[in-house]
Computed example of a mutant assay.
Amino acid sequence: MAARLATGHPVHLRAWRTFGELFGVMRQLANDAPYQDALLDADLANGTLTLLLADALENASPSEHRHLLHLRARARQEPHARTELRAALRTAQTVGTYTDRITALRRQACTLLDRLAPASPYRDLLHSLLHTSARQALGPTPAP
């Protein structure tokens, strides 16, 4: 609505809509961030297909894929399976590809924002929210 108030130009409106979608995705990813304690993670407990899980499934071998789906199903009822699923989602490969995706989405949103909005405290605030969302989406750093 704010974009519509600011401009009636169809190209600018589409660009703002795209920014809004990217911003919404980044905030949802922050919301999906894994809890420090897998037992408290509602997404694992209710079987939500988060981007982290989707990324792990996409990059898994067929046997790993089946194992992750099995853990996902069990995690809805079994706290131990939730902990095991969390560990499976924190492998170096999965964390690396997920980090790359989050970074690419953040960069795309920031670049688009810089094209659409002149420098201002409002643009700075949106940048800050995008950076914070990316950090939150990545969750706690796994122990070495």
Rank of each mutant, 00 (worst) to 15 (best):
H12I: 02
S128D: 07
S128W: 06
G20W: 00
L89T: 01
L69H: 11
D124I: 02
A109G: 15
I102A: 12
L13D: 01
D32V: 00
L68H: 04
L57Q: 09
R106D: 05
T50G: 00
R4C: 02
H65S: 13
A54N: 08
T18Q: 10
T111E: 14
R14C: 05
P144R: 11
P144T: 14
A134P: 06
R106G: 11
L112Q: 04
L85E: 04
R74P: 01
L105M: 12
D37L: 03
L52R: 15
A6T: 11
L40I: 02
R17M: 07
H70P: 01
T97H: 14
T48D: 07
H9K: 05
P34G: 15
D124V: 08
L129P: 06
N46L: 10
A73H: 08
L129S: 15
H9E: 11
Y122E: 08
Y98E: 09
T91C: 15
T18Y: 01
A92F: 06
P118K: 13
V25R: 15
Q36I: 06
A2P: 05
T132G: 14
H80T: 11
D114A: 14
L126F: 06
L22F: 12
R107I: 08
T50C: 00
R27N: 09
D55T: 14
H127A: 07
Q93L: 08
E58Q: 08
E78P: 04
L116C: 10
A75V: 00
L112G: 12
A60T: 01
R14P: 10
L29K: 12
P121M: 07
N46M: 05
